[in-house]
Structure formats: structure tokens, C-alpha cells
């Protein structure tokens, strides 16, 4: 770090949990953010500002007017652009020193697996269960940290998954079977609505968890889900046991 870096990251460095060494870890970290909409916007902006050295952002959508109510990485000048291009531009305006890799694709299959393999942490900011299951499978396959959040209406939830840890569940342990065992609900912000700052709260919490994991500081949300009801301003914490019969992670630690 040079003098400008010391100035830029000074408010991090003065924290004993970060210090010079921690900031160097952040600068050396590689993070994949999948989805740069409502959740991904604050994640991408805070991680860029925090000096995460390499940030890969993946999204196949274009910026539309109805996104601007909550997707704060984008603005009116970006309407019609790819979301990754719009988001990368904003990230570079905040921090031109980090490496940003925009992927204007719907990450899936082999491409998803290869991108997951290249990073330290994956941040799931997508808007549907099908994609979330595939991201979870890829993270289990490559034994990567997964910081997952969701938001809809006035509600949000967040957790961290890492199947390399004994007794640690995966996303499928919680959501895999669905209520009633068959039907998969498919609601998202586009169909059900969401109050703008709820995605900001949940995305900001995802960024905090990413930073803590890189630093190996504090207690992560492993095996625990935080649920947020903004309308009643209540938080609920839920322990999430590993499902030994989980088809995705049940075989691990046998």
C-alpha cells in the first residue's frame, strides 16, 4: 500500500480487527457477485469501496427504468446498458485501483463452475430459487463460502454457507424440499414488489459478512439465518441444522 492507499483505507486500518494486515487481505481477495440488482448493487459498491482486490460481477440483464427505485448501482444514464457495465462504471468511479471483471452472461453450467472455482467467496444476489440452487451446488462442489441473501416486499433474510465445515448446512438443506415437498414458490421483486431500502439493508449485511470472512474475524452466519421483517421492525434468528439426507451436501463428512 502506498500513501494514497493508507489515506483511502485509513478508517479500516484504524480498526484493530482489520489493521494493515487485514486491508492487505481485502486487497488480495477475489469475490464473485452473481446478480447486480437490488442486493448486488450495495454489495458491489461497498466491496469496491472497501478495496476488495478482484470483484467479478455477473448479470445478463439490462438496466430498466423500474430498476432505479432500488438498484442503486445504476442511474438514468445507464438505461439500456448491461447491468454489469453500468455497475462496473460506478464501482470504478468509487475505486479505480481494484480489478473489476464484468460478465454480461447468465452464469450457469460449466461457466458457473469455473468462475466459482476462481474466487474465495461467492455472493448470491439473484432473484429466483432455480439459480440459487445451482449456485449452491457449485459452491458445495468447489467448497467455497456462499453469502446468500434474499428480499421481497418488506422482508429479508441472510445466511452464510460453507459445507467444508463439519455439520454446516447448505442452502439446499433449508430450501431444497420446499414446503409441502413439491411445489417451488417463485416470487420475486418484479412480481411481488419490494420496499427499496430492504434490499439495501440485506445487501449491506452481505458485504459485512464477506469482509468478515476474508479477515477471519467475528462470528459468521454459518448454520444461522437472520430474518428481517421491516414492517414490524423485528429480527428473528433461526438455527439451521445440516440435513444428513440433503442430496447436495449430505454425503460430505460421512
Amino acid at each position: 500500500m502506498n500513501d494514497k492507499d493508507l489515506l483511502r483505507y485509513g478508517r479500516h486500518i484504524m480498526l484493530p480487527e482489520i489493521d494493515f494486515e487485514g486491508q492487505e487481505k481485502l486487497l488480495a481477495a477475489r469475490v464473485l457477485i452473481i446478480g447486480v440488482g437490488g442486493l448486488g448493487s450495495p454489495v458491489a459498491l461497498y466491496l469496491a469501496a472497501s478495496g476488495i482486490g478482484q470483484i467479478i460481477i455477473a448479470d445478463h440483464d439490462k438496466v430498466e427504468l423500474n430498476n432505479l427505485q432500488r438498484q442503486i448501482a445504476h442511474d438514468e444514464n445507464g438505461l439500456g446498458q448491461s447491468k454489469v457495465s453500468s455497475c462496473a462504471n460506478r464501482m470504478k468511479q468509487i475505486n479505480s485501483k481494484i480489478n473489476i471483471v464484468p460478465l454480461d452472461v447468465k452464469l450457469s453450467g460449466e461457466q458457473l463452475l469455473s468462475q466459482v472455482a476462481e474466487v474465495d467467496i461467492v455472493v448470491d444476489c439473484t432473484d429466483n430459487l432455480t439459480t440459487r440452487f445451482e449456485i449452491n451446488q457449485a459452491c458445495v462442489t468447489h467448497n467455497k463460502w456462499l453469502v446468500s441473501a434474499a428480499a421481497i416486499r418488506w422482508e429479508g433474510q441472510i445466511s452464510v454457507y460453507h459445507c467444508g465445515d463439519k455439520d454446516s448446512p447448505c442452502y439446499h438443506c433449508c430450501y431444497g424440499l420446499g414446503a409441502g415437498g413439491s411445489k417451488e414458490p417463485e416470487q420475486n421483486c418484479s412480481t411481488s414488489g419490494v420496499v427499496s431500502p430492504v434490499v439495501g439493508v440485506m445487501g449491506s449485511l452481505q458485504a459485512i459478512e464477506v469482509i468478515k470472512l476474508i479477515l477471519s474475524q467475528g462470528d459468521s452466519l454459518i448454520s444461522r439465518v437472520l430474518l428481517f421483517d421491516a414492517l414490524s421492525m423485528q429480527w428473528e434468528s433461526m438455527q439451521l441444522p445440516k440435513n444428513p439426507d440433503c442430496p447436495v451436501c449430505g454425503h460430505i463428512n460421512d
Partner: peptide, 18 residues
């Protein structure tokens, strides 16, 4: 509705559907 009560938490611990 059982499907609407998607996340079921008993004494702070998730209860999986089965």
C-alpha cells in the same frame, strides 16, 4: 396454508418439511 408457511422455526431451530 402449509406452502405459505415456508420457513417453520420451532424454538429457534428450522424444521425441515419431512
Amino acid at each position: 396454508d402449509r406452502e405459505e408457511a415456508y420457513l417453520v422455526i420451532l424454538n429457534g431451530v428450522f424444521v425441515c418439511p419431512p
